[in-house]
């Protein structure tokens, strides 16, 4: 009991002192689980399209809920141009069942992919729901951060970070802003 408490205290202290999470420049080769338990490799997922948008998911996050309509609009607009959109569930409470229910309830066009052990989230430095990365077909991360600069109350004049990044990348340019703040809820990863 004492040893367990000491370990927990050490873990807390280490966590408290830890610096910013590591952020891979490329999507790692980690497994993701899709509907029906289908296993997908994250890198291979990115290879299937010129650009892939990965948005981290949490079911109770109002910040993400607020942005769902904007994400759907982006998917509708950029999907025909070859951009694919996926939600990633990296939370410790995530399951295929939960993700299937949530995807259906929210009307997502793409499945929520399960990131067991939060390996993808940890590699990409994802700590908040609504954190989004744009990956090119080689697996290189081209944009990471928020969907826009709104948190929960959407404004018409919000800065559309993700849209701008997609426009730039599809136009053959580097994103005008390659990294922003994601204003979402904490992902419960452990």
């Amino acid at each position: 009991m004492v040893v367990r408490a000491a370990r927990l205290a050490c873990a807390c202290a280490l966590l408290s002192c830890a610096g910013p999470a590591p952020r891979a420049a490329e999507v790692p080769r980690v497994p993701l689980a899709g509907p029906g338990g289908q296993s997908l490799d994250a890198r291979a997922l990115a290879a299937g399209a010129p650009l892939t948008v990965l948005t981290f998911f949490s079911p109770d996050c109002d910040c993400l809920v607020a942005h769902e309509a904007r994400l759907r609009a982006l998917a509708g607009e950029y999907g025909p141009r070859g951009v694919r959109f996926f939600m990633i569930d990296s939370e410790v409470g995530g399951s295929l069942e939960r993700d299937a229910i949530e995807a259906a309830r929210r009307g997502y066009r793409s499945p929520i992919l399960l990131d067991r052990g939060a390996r993808l989230a940890d590699a990409l430095g994802a700590r908040f729901a609504a954190f989004t990365v744009v990956v090119d077909s080689t697996g290189r991360v081209r944009y990471r951060g928020g969907i826009d600069d709104d948190r929960m109350h959407l404004r018409d004049d919000a800065r559309p970070y993700l849209r701008d990044a997609l426009d730039d990348l599809l136009g053959g340019r580097e994103p005008r802003v390659a990294e922003t703040e994601a204003l979402g809820c904490a992902l419960q990863k452990w």
Binding site: D60, A186, Q188
Partner: peptide
């Protein structure tokens, strides 16, 4: 916190 925050708001 930018880095650590509660699950919901």
């Amino acid at each position: 916190s930018r880095a650590w925050a509660q699950a919901c708001c």
